[in-house]
């Protein structure tokens, strides 16, 4: 079994399935997590699955260029900025309410 696995090289399909699974886990986490930080982590997972896609497609579809890898670096930078902004907002809310439970956010309604 191990020798069989070691002899296989992952192809485009394997990577796409991996990124699809990551994306799906992200969506599932976003829908089920109650803590805002957990929700943010799920979103990061989704962004990273997209970044993985860019690198994989770069390798298999356009090996001559580096466009996809550059995009992946930008995605990481943007995700970091997004996390900073989200955390700033979460800290402000936590000071005021003492909880980050997203199901308790119901002050806005008519």
């Amino acid at each position: 079994m191990t020798t069989f696995l070691a002899a296989q090289t992952p192809g485009l399909t394997h990577w796409i399935v991996l990124s699809g699974v990551l994306f799906a886990i992200g969506v599932y986490g976003l829908l089920t997590r109650r803590n805002a930080i957990g929700v943010l982590m799920s979103i990061e997972l989704m962004l990273n699955s997209a970044a993985l896609n860019f690198v994989v497609f770069n390798h298999f579809r356009a090996p001559a260029g580096v466009d996809g890898q550059i995009m992946a670096i930008f995605v990481i930078a943007v995700a970091a900025a997004e996390a900073v902004i989200a955390m700033a907002i979460f800290v402000a809310i936590y000071r005021r309410r003492g909880t980050l439970d997203v199901t308790s956010m119901d002050a806005l309604k008519d």
Partner: peptide
């Protein structure tokens, strides 16, 4: 309270939507 909650909802929905967009763009690139 309301402004903070608006920010939290916007940042979560907004990041969610941008992740979808980015995933779509990655397929266009692929």
């Amino acid at each position: 309270l309301k402004s903070g909650e608006a920010g939290l909802k916007y940042v979560i929905y907004g990041a969610f939507a941008s992740a979808f967009l980015l995933y779509g763009l990655s397929f266009v690139y692929g």
